[in-house]
Simulated assay, not measured.
Amino acid sequence: MKSPRVGKTPFLLNTPHRPLAGFPLAFSHRGFAPAGEENTVKAFTAATELGFGYLETDVHATRDGVLVAFHDEDLVRLTGDPRRVRDCTAAELAELRVAGEPIPTFEELLESFRSARFNVDIKAGPAAELMAETLVRHRAADRVLLGSFNGSRRHMASRLLAADDRTHQLATSPGIIGVGAAVLIGAVAPLPRAVYGSFAALQVPETHGKLRVVTPRFIQRAHDASLQVHVWVVNDAPAMHRLLDMGVDGIMTDAAPTLAAVMSERGHWPQNSLTR
């Protein structure tokens, strides 16, 4: 099967002549958080210690304009606090804990994990502008891939980065573009370049309702468009092996030790030493 591991996307290290050439990528979804400490420095440290070089996270903006790594719109599930992230200042969030761990800023993650690559879901509009500013300030656009369920957030960050004379490939929106791509690529016709031109990868669930998104035909059509296929969230070893045998280019998981073991069995591990 033809592989899309070509192109100039700095984030993707599994392209020819790069450290992970020919390897599928392993993404630790919100870090490795067995005690529920998702999206914390502890969780991402645990993932890198397992061998992960690719980390998935989410970002919101605080009331005073600080980018924080947090998934939910509100704080209830993880901290018990009823407020929304956007209604809190960074100082107020610093007082809260997720399974005993502080909520990190995104800048803290960039500084703490300098050799890691981050796959980031932009969860709110104000976070898009802050993300672009942060990537420029830290010169980190080459190690961050942006996605969002809201396309305007991606496009805003892209425009701001382009205005700074930086190049940055964006991931497709998981879910929205995933389902659309399943129709365009898998069922009807090759994906038009006007649709995929600014994307580096299709990041999709294996299934969406009754629709099977990831199939050999879907992967081939994506590869024909020079797009990688990253599948989320896959947590059992048989499914991981099946998808890798099918030819996907990356897997995101909440079961970090399981994916690490599968990748090791297939000779694709560790990946953290190769992302430096």
Rank of each mutant, 00 (worst) to 15 (best):
V229G: 00
G267P: 07
E92Q: 15
I185L: 15
R166C: 01
R166T: 02
E129F: 06
A94H: 02
M131T: 15
N150M: 13
L243C: 07
G100D: 10
R63K: 15
E133I: 02
A33I: 00
K123S: 05
P190C: 03
P82N: 15
G178A: 13
E95G: 03
A21L: 01
L191E: 13
D142E: 06
A99I: 04
G186E: 05
F118A: 05
D236A: 10
R77S: 10
Y54N: 15
A162G: 14
A181Y: 10
L145N: 00
G65C: 11
W269Q: 14
M252I: 10
L93C: 12
L191N: 11
K2Q: 15
K2I: 08
K123H: 02
A124G: 00
L161Y: 04
F149G: 09
P216I: 06
T9L: 13
A256E: 08
L243W: 09
M131A: 12
G250D: 14
S152T: 05
R97F: 04
G22C: 10
P190H: 10
Q169D: 09
A43T: 08
A43I: 12
R193E: 15
F52C: 11
R18T: 09
G80S: 14
V59S: 00
P205D: 09
R83V: 02
V98T: 09
G80E: 12
P238E: 03
R86K: 14
A132M: 01
V233R: 06
D87H: 06
A124E: 09
E129L: 13
V213S: 11
S3Q: 15
I219P: 00
P126E: 07
N14I: 04
E56W: 06
E107R: 14
T105S: 15
D72H: 01
P126N: 07
L50R: 09
R143Y: 13
H71T: 04
P82W: 12
F44C: 05
A128Q: 08
G51R: 03
E108F: 01
L78Q: 12
F218Y: 15
H168C: 05
I103P: 07
P174V: 09
V204C: 10
L227W: 09
S112V: 03
V76E: 13
M246I: 10
D87C: 05
G178V: 13
H155F: 05
L78P: 08
V41P: 05
R221M: 11
R266K: 07
P270T: 13
P104I: 06
T48V: 10
P4Q: 10
D74P: 04
V136A: 07
S115K: 11
G100M: 07
A187C: 09
T79F: 01
D254M: 13
G51I: 10
A163Q: 15
P216T: 02
S264I: 00
A61E: 05
Q169R: 05
A47D: 04
P174D: 11
M263E: 05
R84F: 14
P104D: 05
D245M: 12
